Amino acid sequence: ALRETGVIEKLLTSYGFIQCSERQARLFFHCSQYNGNLQDLKVGDDVEFEVSSDRRTGKPIAVKLVKIK
């Protein structure tokens, strides 16, 4: 799958939103999709991810998040 990059724009307890670098979009992500310690993730962090689609709504979502050092 194609990896994309973006910036954490909003972060809540169990989910957040990424502002994409490659496209004009804000993508939802669930915190279970982040492969690191959530305490280390904060607004403004650069992340890399794959784009999938929500099974219920069909909308694009970010999965398999990795923080870019």
Rank of each mutant, 00 (worst) to 15 (best):
V51W: 11
K10M: 07
I68H: 06
L11S: 03
Q24P: 10
K64P: 00
C31N: 15
E9A: 10
K42L: 12
P60N: 13
T5L: 06
P60E: 15
Q24R: 13
V66G: 08
C20S: 13
I68A: 09
G16W: 00
R23P: 10
K59N: 07
L11D: 01
E48C: 06
L2D: 04
A25E: 13
D54T: 10
A25C: 10
D40T: 09
F49K: 01
I61M: 10
D45G: 03
S14C: 04
T57S: 13
F28N: 03
S21Y: 12
Q39T: 11
V51L: 10
E48T: 08
K64R: 10
Q33T: 10
C31K: 11
I61V: 09
I68Y: 15
V63K: 09
K69I: 05
K64Y: 05
R56V: 09
Q19W: 09
L11N: 03
T13H: 06
R56H: 14
A25F: 08
V43Q: 09
N37H: 15
L12N: 15
V63G: 04
S14F: 04
I18E: 01
K67D: 05
A62Y: 00
Q33G: 13
T13L: 06
V7M: 04
S32M: 04
A62Q: 01
Q33I: 04
E22G: 14
N35D: 03
K69H: 03
L38Q: 12
F29G: 00
E48P: 00
L27H: 02
I8F: 01
S52M: 13
V47Q: 00
C31R: 13
C31T: 14
D45P: 00
Q39F: 09
S53T: 13
K59S: 10
Y34L: 10
Y15A: 07
T13N: 11
D45A: 05
L12R: 05
K42M: 12
D45Y: 01
G36R: 08
G44W: 04
L2E: 12
H30N: 14
C31P: 14
E9N: 15
C31Y: 09
A25G: 05
E50W: 02
V7L: 05
R26A: 10
L41D: 01
V66K: 15
G16P: 01
E4A: 03
D46A: 12
I61K: 13
K59L: 06
T13M: 03
I61E: 12
G44I: 00
G44T: 03
V7G: 02
S52Q: 11
D54M: 15
S21E: 13
N37F: 09
S14H: 03
V66L: 10
E4I: 11
K10I: 08
S21G: 07
L41T: 01
T57K: 14
L2A: 04
S32G: 14
Y34W: 12
G16A: 03
D40K: 04
P60S: 10
L41K: 00
Q19D: 15
D46G: 13
I68C: 04
K64E: 14
E22T: 03
K42E: 07
D54V: 05
D40W: 03
V43C: 15
R3N: 02
G44Y: 02
K42Q: 10
V7A: 12
K64D: 15
I68D: 03
A62I: 04
V47P: 00
Q33E: 14
D40A: 05
S14I: 03
Q19C: 12
T13R: 04
K59A: 07
N35V: 11
E4N: 11
E48D: 14
I61N: 14
L65W: 02
K64F: 09
D45N: 10
T5S: 07
G16R: 01
E48A: 13
D45M: 08
L27F: 08
V51G: 07
G58A: 11
K69R: 05
T13Y: 09
K64G: 09
L12H: 15
L27N: 01
S21I: 07
L65F: 02
D45H: 07
S32E: 11
F17S: 02
L41R: 00
R55P: 09
G44M: 05
R55V: 10
K67R: 14
G58C: 03
G16F: 00
K59R: 12
I68G: 12
V51C: 13
L65C: 11
L27K: 01
Y15C: 08
L65H: 02
D54H: 09
F29Q: 00
I8S: 00
E4S: 15
E4T: 13
C20K: 15
Q19V: 10
F28R: 09
Q39E: 15
D46Q: 13
L38G: 06
L27D: 00
V7Q: 13
L65Q: 01
F49H: 00
K64S: 15
L27T: 02
Q24V: 13
T5R: 11
N37C: 09
K42W: 03
V7K: 15
G16D: 02
I68K: 06
G44S: 03
L11W: 05
E50L: 09
E50M: 07
F29V: 03
T57N: 15
L65M: 11
K69N: 14
E9R: 10
A62W: 01
I68P: 10
V7Y: 06
V66Q: 07
R23C: 07
A25H: 07
A1Y: 02
I8R: 00
L38H: 13
A62R: 01
I18H: 01
D45I: 04
Q19N: 14
Q39S: 12
R23I: 09
L41S: 01
F29S: 01
D45S: 13
P60L: 10
Q33Y: 07
K64H: 11
G58Y: 11
K67E: 04
S21R: 13
K69W: 14
R56K: 11
Q19A: 07
V7W: 04
E9V: 04
S32N: 08
E4Q: 10
R23L: 04
G16Q: 00
L11V: 06
K42F: 07
R3W: 02
R55H: 08
S53V: 14
I18M: 02
I18L: 10
K64T: 15
I18S: 00
A25D: 03
H30F: 08
A62C: 08
E48K: 11
P60W: 11
C31E: 14
H30P: 10
Y15W: 10
V63Q: 01
K59T: 12
G58S: 11
P60H: 15
D46W: 08
E9I: 12
R55T: 09
E48S: 09
S53D: 14
N37Q: 13
L38I: 07
L41N: 00
L38N: 15
R3T: 04
F49I: 01
L27G: 01
R55M: 07
R26F: 07
R3F: 02
L11Y: 04
Y34K: 15
A62D: 02
L65T: 04
V47S: 00
E50G: 11
E9T: 15
R55Q: 14
S52H: 14
L12D: 08
Y34E: 12
H30Y: 10
S32K: 03
K10Q: 10
E50Y: 08
Q39W: 12
K10A: 11
N37S: 11
T13I: 11
E9G: 13
S14Y: 06
